[in-house]
Design a protein around this nucleic acid. Structure first.
Lengths: 200, 200
DNA sequence: AAATATTTTAATCAAATGATTAAAAAATAT
DNA sequence: ATATTTTTTAATCATTTGATTAAAATATTT
């Protein structure tokens, strides 16, 4: 066998190089707009090698998509389900962690939302964000605090204030540096505003 | 000549049928994912006819894109530049009109933002949303009211709360009817929240 | 009605693209 | 060292897709 190695050097193995390249190109251009040749070139390998390792564009895409969805949920789920955090603590942690994640992965929201819209059937069953949220400690606390407001409205506002700048970055912000700076200062603003909204 | 007619019946002319179909398919699937055959089929005409009328997929797309951008801006610009409206009145009108527009064109935000991201160079010059906003009555009022907060933060929050539900509809909302209903009740909520934020 | 111009279509082209194949190169085992 | 297995490549295929062409159909003008 010509196994690349045992455990070390995995981050530079061909397979890993392809995954890294696919992650980059897919999230940047979306499924239909990326050509397998783009990924191969980005990975510095032959096109046939991509199919040797992953059988097809579709298979490779599924892999990346699952990875990205887990990345998004790994930040949300532990927080909204943590019974030890108060409503205000949840909001603060959520905003802080989510903006940090998005600063490192600015393409993530538009990519994920775009692909879900492009193929709703493929995610209808797998993704039950609504159900998970419905039964969360977060929603329970929201209902308790403000029985007069549907929790979804508050959640959408919080997510909107947090995620939307990364979706509309191209249009609303100048250079990348001021954007990052403003996203940092935005953490405190959103937290404060969300608290205010909870009281009003 | 075989001109279809003089002035009547234009809404069913071949040219108009193609534009309607292109509008629908492009906004639903985006530029790369739509095939000219899809548009032709949707319009109920031959594929060659599409190229006879519009020369190319790209040309037809440009037409639709300009139309959609004008649609988006035709709602924002008159309001943010209206010196006769108070800050609170601007917010209320903006939210009301924008949600109405988005209820009728739910695919618009993801489409426009996706295409701009896919081809930033093509819009960098044409779209100067930042500059227009910068000099608007709206931003002046915001600076005046809250000199301690960068206006962009407020604008992003307002737009985020308004637009984001239409972008994440697929994930966060159940059926289309309850969604529309909740968007209607959301108008008052956002307006109230925005006012609160301005005071805090 | 005949001639002319416009609109529409069927057939086809050329380029792009996901995928395969057969052979070469490299690694591992014997 | 030789044989065997795994990895990589160049060449090629088949399908999709935007676009064109030549002819047919329809409308307009004379």
């Amino acid at each position: 066998m010509a196994k690349n190695n045992g455990a070390k050097n995995l981050d530079t193995s061909t397979e890993e190089k392809i995954i890294q390249a696919a992650s980059k190109v897919f999230t940047q251009k979306g499924y239909v707009a990326t050509r397998t040749r783009d990924i191969a070139e980005e990975a510095g390998i032959n096109l046939a090698l991509l199919n040797y390792y992953f059988r097809s564009k579709e298979k490779l895409f599924q892999l990346i998509m699952v990875e990205k969805l887990q990345l998004l949920f790994s930040v949300i789920l532990p927080i909204v389900n943590n019974d030890d955090l108060s409503l205000e603590e949840k909001v603060e942690t959520l905003v802080e962690n989510y903006i940090n994640l998005l600063i490192d992965n600015p393409d993530l929201p538009l990519f994920v939302l775009g692909e879900i819209k492009a193929n709703p059937a493929g995610f209808k069953d797998r993704l039950q964000v609504r159900k998970v949220l419905q039964n969360s400690s977060f929603v329970r606390q929201l209902r308790n605090r403000r029985p007069d407001v549907e929790p979804v409205h508050f959640i959408v506002s919080l997510l909107g204030m947090t995620v939307f700048p990364f979706i509309a970055k191209q249009i609303l912000f100048a250079d990348d540096n001021t954007f990052k700076m403003q996203m940092e200062e935005r953490k405190a603003l959103i937290t404060k505003w969300a608290r205010t909204i909870l009281e009003t």
